[in-house]
Design a protein around this nucleic acid. Structure first.
Lengths: 131, 131
DNA sequence: ATTACTGCAAAGCGTTTGCATGTTC
DNA sequence: GAACATGCAAACGCTTTGCAGTAAT
């Protein structure tokens, strides 16, 4: 069905190498030097495929979607100031068990999103207020 | 600062009256009969304001944003088949306490998103397979 | 040879914005 | 009458799609 392609492998590698959570545009910009004629559409198409295959996950929030290499289930924190996305431990938990049992239907995935200020932005703001 | 407007009140009322989680377009369509000259931009602008004021919340996921009257903190389930959005109990929990304490920064809000098949779609699919 | 994958450009969707007009205070 | 809100249309950001050409099997 699916065929090998240099571009796709490059995209997969690029996502897996990064610890932050790049957008399609970011990946595109980073791949450009090595693959000058790669197009943004190709990035989007391949990200879509990789998501479909479960190799990566797509993180939807306000603005551009971000992509993440799947290691194990985890959640994300979004800083309202700088927009960074940080990995968070998954609320493991008996609570989820509980919710699952009580829900009429099938829960296939959970994504907990946390919003607020990251450490760096918190410090910046604190200093700005002090001065 | 903010001034009264018929449109805003209508929008606020419309969101608060609904138990599902309408998109801006949906609200617009519903308000159209009673407010024929209301524009979509007005719906978006007012939804934005109401979110800013904390009267309603904006639920971001794949596709159009949905809006929800704030009663108390809760989570949402998204059906991958019909696209419906259902309220879920918030994972209350000691886990969140724990995460908060361990996180360097400030968590201002949490939104747990569940994905899967709702009861209705599950049954439809089951019947489709059986036949 | 077949058929998936590519690049490019155009279109798509959801949302925001500029501007002239209307409304509220 | 000053400041805010509206309607309209145009622009926006992110993403998808149609098509003709290229590359992997």
């Amino acid at each position: 069905m699916a065929r090998y392609s240099r571009q796709r492998e490059a995209i997969r590698k690029q996502v897996s190498n990064r610890k932050d959570h790049p957008t399609a545009e970011t990946l595109y910009a980073e791949l450009k030097p090595d693959y000058p004629e790669m197009s943004l559409a190709t990035v989007y198409r391949n990200l879509g495929q990789l998501v479909e295959w479960g190799d990566i996950i797509r993180i939807d929030a306000h603005g551009a979607a971000r992509y993440d290499w799947v290691v194990e289930p985890h959640s994300h924190f979004f800083c309202r100031e700088c927009g960074c996305v940080v990995d968070m431990p998954e609320a493991d938990d008996s609570t989820l068990q509980d919710i699952r049992e009580r829900f009429d239907g099938t829960i296939e995935a959970v994504a907990s999103n946390y919003f607020g200020l990251c450490k760096e932005c918190e410090e910046k703001l604190r200093k700005a207020i002090e001065s």
